[in-house]
Design a protein around this nucleic acid. Structure first.
Lengths: 189, 189, 189, 189
DNA sequence: TATGAATGAGAATTCATTCAT
DNA sequence: AATGAATGAATTCTCATTCAT
């Protein structure tokens, strides 16, 4: 049962992450439970309250950033320039923004030490990757890991329907603008 | 009396817009009423329900975009290049993103015809301004008005605290990246 | 409507007081609302949360103690010895204990200033009445107002059913023992 | 194994009794299980539901009363007058009130035959002790065993904080009043 | 017409009890 | 037989909306 329970817990986390991303931070706990195929009691047995769930999902997200950065480092070290694009794609695909939206709005003033630590670790690794990419002229020199995350996060949040309804593929165009903004920039006069 | 009522209504709209932008889409109707200095009953007399209020605020926002675009057209027509920057600044300062966030997440699948029309009108005017700016090499050629609005909107939404706490001025850096992305881009190989 | 609403509020207080006394501190807020003939929302509009309701009921109780004490003072001043018995009966009849049970168990560590003040005022008045009763040899000399309230309170709390079921009138017997304990006591050797 | 299981069961009972007395009737079953060092499943294996546990604890309490009474009888038979005080102290120290509070409020209208029987047995023994004490002029003549239990129970229940905070030693003063009330009383005119 | 009191559905959370291992 | 995970009903509280004055 140990492994059973663990699997269930992991599943709740995965489902919660998706729902936060797709339907916003206000998604009802009951909806998350239902979508996870468990009772509301089980959800609360695994995560003491909404904030606890939010924090766990955040940790997963930060770990994903760290691990994607680590892979990028390895490829960039091997002079594979596409390592950078893969990292960027990965950050974008994670729905990083939608998620951090959901999370950020409800994390309390005092962010927990576990999150701070994971955030520091993710930043550190991402900055290493960024350093290599900058050396390879793949990205503008004046951007930090945190700024990159915040930028990707801003761009990948769910779009107001009034906009996204009007033009299919709108999200992709915005991503393209961001990609261009991230490139090494010509000197301004 | 008519003008009294009209002024009250305008005031509710202004207050609602600010509160949506500052405190998010979840702001309680009662809070809006209170901040507007009217009773909750009066709020509902003016706006049938929450959705109606949201739609009206959206219309105001779209009209602001249209009018800022119109002013930009006049300046660009007069060969004042800063007309473009003024327009961009205006879109950014409107807290367009924070607002559209609040609004967009609750507009239903079927956006009302009035909104579609106002959006079309805003787009049209903005596209004219954009055309002039493109001719003047102030902005990349492959961007539409809707895409510009969506981009500014994405970028100016409130930032998760976990991020903005870590680095003062983070928002400005992201805006800068967007500005660079909006510029005419060098051809990619 | 002002008076309507006030009447409703008073009624909720009265009902809550009775239910706390009869059915204990855990009585559901919904039950109180129902018994008051109002919706749960109305209960919460009048009393921000359970604690607020508890505090208001406590204030009413303390005021009742004060006013009964005041009447006793007047009668004792007029040399009417039964003033004392009337006061004691009044404290007993109020279901003082059942109520203070309900209240006391959930009042927070920090009792609100309003309650402290009402308590001080009730104590002051009750102590004055007690002083007169002591002079008249109606009550033992070594008891304070607070002790009297606590004693009456202890005695008039709801009795475990296993006991009260077994002997009708059990409560009255216990009250009698308390009355005797409150009288001036013969010196102990 | 049998004795192992028995010991476990006894331990749960002991712990439950303490928790009911110290922390009130609302204590969670899970808390009782944890404090007993067993899983919640084991608790339920031993006691079908909360009521069953409550009833068993009540039986233990009644048995304690019986046995303290029996000891008192022996001492009073031997003309040791302090046998009475020891019995009274014992009832007081058992936290009889706190416990019966917790228990009494949740026993159903129909008390189980086992409890009625144990209560009868405890009453019988206590009444014998009382008879001897009355003969020795240690206690008022007009009190029954059940009344004594109920009186001690009333007096030893936990005090509302608003009261006990105000005066250290308040509980002891109330006990003293009860002791005086239990003594042989002078004839009233 | 303006007000704000009343309503009740919905959301978060707790906990007694059941059940799979 | 012991364990503790799962369940869902019950409870507190919030807030959009209605309605009496």
């Amino acid at each position: 049962m140990r492994s059973d329970a663990l699997r269930r817990r992991e599943n709740i986390l995965r489902v919660a992450r998706e729902l936060f991303a797709e339907r916003g931070a206000q998604i009802a706990m009951e909806t998350i439970a239902e979508a996870s195929g468990v009772g509301i009691g089980t959800l609360y047995r695994n995560f003491a309250d909404r904030l606890a769930l939010v924090e766990e999902v955040t940790l997963v997200m930060l770990e994903d950033i760290r691990s994607a950065s680590q892979q990028a480092i390895e490829r960039l070290d091997a002079n594979e320039a596409e390592g950078w694009d893969v990292l960027l794609d990965s950050l974008i695909e994670q729905n990083l923004g939608a998620l951090s939206e959901a999370l950020g709005l409800q994390l309390p003033k005092k962010v927990s030490p576990r999150i701070l630590e994971a955030q520091a670790e993710a930043s550190r690794t991402l900055n290493s990757a960024l350093g290599l990419a900058k050396n390879a002229q793949l990205v503008r020199a004046d951007i930090s890991g945190l700024e990159l995350i915040a930028t990707v996060g801003s761009i990948t949040r769910p779009m107001p329907r009034a906009f996204s309804n009007s033009q299919p593929g709108l999200e992709e165009r915005i991503v393209q603008i961001m990609r261009d903004g991230l490139r090494p920039q010509p000197a301004q006069n």
